[in-house]
C-alpha cells in the first residue's frame, strides 16, 4: 500500500483503521505507535488529526505520556459487556442468513484443509 493511496481514502475508513489498531493493541498508544501499528504509510500528522477527532467524539480517551498523549478506546460499562458476550454466544448457529458474516462455522475437516492451504500459501 502506498502512502498516496492511503491519504486518498475516505476519512471514515481511516478512522476505522486507527480505531481497530487501538482495540487490537489493548494498551494506550501514542500517535507514533499507532502509525507504526498501521504500517500503511499514513503521515503522523494525519494519525494525530484522526486521533483528536475520535477523542472529540468521545470514542477514545487519552492520557498524558511524555510530551504528548497516548490514546485508548473507551470501554463499555461492565454490565453491557457481559450482555453482549451473552448475545454473541447465542449466535452460535448460522441461522441469520441475512447478516453476512465474515466467516462461517468450520467443520474439523475444514480446519485441516485451511491449515494446509495457509501453509502452502506461505511458501
Amino acid at each position: 500500500m502506498t502512502s498516496a493511496k492511503d491519504e486518498r481514502r475516505p476519512a471514515g475508513e481511516l478512522e476505522a483503521s486507527v480505531m481497530a489498531a487501538l482495540w487490537a493493541a489493548g494498551v494506550p498508544l501514542t500517535p507514533g505507535r499507532v502509525q507504526l501499528e498501521l504500517d500503511s504509510g499514513l503521515a503522523r500528522t494525519t494519525v494525530t488529526t484522526i486521533l483528536s477527532r475520535l477523542h472529540e467524539k468521545g470514542i477514545v480517551g487519552r492520557e498524558r505520556q511524555g510530551r504528548g498523549y497516548a490514546y485508548f478506546p473507551v470501554q463499555d460499562p461492565p454490565g453491557l459487556t457481559a450482555r453482549r458476550m451473552h448475545s454473541e454466544l447465542d449466535r452460535d448457529d448460522d441461522r441469520e442468513t441475512a447478516l453476512a458474516r465474515f466467516v462461517a462455522q468450520l467443520s474439523p475437516d475444514d480446519e485441516r484443509l485451511l491449515r494446509d492451504l495457509l501453509e502452502s500459501g506461505e511458501e
Binding site: P10, A11, G12, E13, L14, E15, A16, V18, M19, A20, W23, L54, K57, G58, I59, P73, Q75, D76, T81, R84, M85, E88
Partner: peptide
Amino acid sequence: PAAGDLCVIES
C-alpha cells in the same frame, strides 16, 4: 458512536 463505519463490540 462509530469510528467511521466501524463498530467495535467487546467480546
